[in-house]
Write a protein that binds this DNA or RNA. Sequence first.
DNA 1: TTATAGATTGCCT
DNA 2: GGCAATCTATAAT
Length: 187
Amino acid sequence: MAGELVGARLICDPGSALEVVAVIVEVEAYLGTSDPAAHAAAGRTARNCVLFGPPGYAYVYFIYGNHYCLNVSCMPAGEAGSVLFRALEPVLGAGRMARNRGLDVPPAGKAARLLTSGPGRLCQAFAITRQRDNGKDLVAPGSGLSIMDDGFRVPAIAATPRIGITKAADRPLRYVIAGNRFVSGKR
DNA sequence: TTATAGATTGCCT
DNA sequence: GGCAATCTATAAT
């Protein structure tokens, strides 16, 4: 299920000087055409066609005129289930993430979460854009952007209602590492 | 063709 | 706590 991605790592440009690594600490599941909150609910369009393809591919979309969000398709071709990445915890390359977000140095202490806490922020930290990353294979190494599950089992994953949506907002499809300070939202 | 809502963030008071 | 920024898809003229 979607919660298995929590605790895995998101890696950009491995092996290069630009390498950036972060642990996935918060995701949300979108169930496809049967989920009124999902982009796929209205059927296949030019924007969301990646969702209907094979699993493991990046679906990047632009929202509110300002922000990108990163999903990964997770259902067989023809079905549109996906997982939205909502927050990461930096492991390597925090300085580069900060620069991608227009900062000279990574924020420290309490403000550290500003780097990757939130779907728009994490995309900016990884310099993810629709043009560059939409449709990328996140499972195959060498694509420049990939998910690596190192097998680490997170001790406590909590399921909560999804955030920022107006339809079907009561379903507990958001998975977070309990107590992790990079999880988005208050506190 | 024009209008409006949206899986957000950051800067304003 | 409120609102502007301004891309994409869909609904309404």
